[in-house]
Computed example of a mutant assay.
Amino acid sequence: MGLGGIVNCRCWKDAGLDGPIGFDEDGWFDLLDSTDPVAYRWYEAGCEHRDFSLAHEDLGSWGGQSAVRQTCTEIGWDLLPTLRAVLPTTNDGWIPVADVPAVLAELDVFESRAGMVTETVLVDEETGQGIYSCVAANLSIIGWNRALQAGIDQDGFFVRSTRLIPRTVFRATRFTQRELRGGRVEFAGDQGTARLRLFLVGHVMPVTPSRLAVVTRNQSADGWSHWIGSMRRLCAAALATGNPVKWT
């Protein structure tokens, strides 16, 4: 599951039904007075928009939302105070329409500064394609089983035991991987070799990589274009309707 954002239409306002129809205390659009026959009939069949929605945007996974917040932290929340207040951590909450102009201004700041923030990326050395990433000094857990946990951080790729006494059983900045019999994988890197009962890294890709490396580089501002564009479209709809952006 991920995060979405919606902005409701203003058809009920144009129909003169602002009052019996509107937003409840949790920010959800609803029929507030079911005893009003005109409002009830309109709510049932009076709007041309599906689910009374004028705009809807898919804002990506919760992992992506975490990366947004991590990037905001690196940029500096003092430059993004409104985003700090309204960015969701769950599928509820909203951006009040009064805050939308400030959000738009802070999106401009985010866009101009995101490229100054570093990211750590696990790449397929043969293609240069990024597979997993984490922002600045954060780490990313990319998979696990009952006994082992794999991830990346600023020091490279790691596999660590999750048993009673945790310990790192493999670490490398550059490594190869190959599948062995019995559900085991051999990792061979610049800090040694390990044969572990684990998955092949990047096995969900069309071609599973055999040579991998962890690199640190500046983020590409273009990498945020989908999220920024979606946020701007939601904000534009909010200004056009006078309605909040609601997280879903």
Rank of each mutant, 00 (worst) to 15 (best):
S133N: 11
L164T: 05
L122I: 00
W144R: 11
G192S: 03
S61P: 04
I152D: 03
W247N: 09
R171S: 15
G64H: 15
P166G: 10
K246S: 14
W247Q: 03
P96N: 06
L17N: 06
P20G: 03
L54V: 11
T118K: 14
N145E: 11
G76R: 08
R160A: 13
A45L: 09
P37Y: 09
R163W: 15
V100G: 05
C47S: 12
L104F: 00
G22A: 03
D51T: 05
M1H: 08
Y43D: 09
E119V: 14
K246T: 15
A39N: 10
A85Y: 00
C11V: 13
E186R: 06
E48W: 06
G223W: 12
R211D: 02
V117W: 01
V38T: 12
R211W: 00
N138T: 06
S53E: 14
G19Y: 10
L164H: 08
V109A: 05
L148D: 06
W94H: 10
S53A: 12
V109E: 07
D190F: 05
V214D: 04
P20C: 01
T35L: 08
F29L: 13
C47T: 07
L239I: 12
L87F: 08
V68Q: 02
R217V: 05
L198E: 04
G151M: 08
G46I: 11
A238E: 07
A150Q: 11
H49Y: 09
N138F: 05
G115E: 06
C134Q: 03
R84Y: 10
F110D: 04
T173A: 13
T90A: 14
S61G: 14
V214T: 04
A114V: 14
A137T: 13
G183V: 11
T168L: 06
R217N: 01
Q70P: 01
G4V: 03
V103I: 02
H49M: 07
S230L: 01
G46F: 07
S66E: 15
T90L: 13
V135T: 15
P209S: 00
L87P: 00
P244E: 13
E106R: 04
T168C: 12
Y40V: 06
A213K: 02
T35E: 15
V207T: 07
A137Q: 13
R217T: 08
R160I: 01
D58P: 03
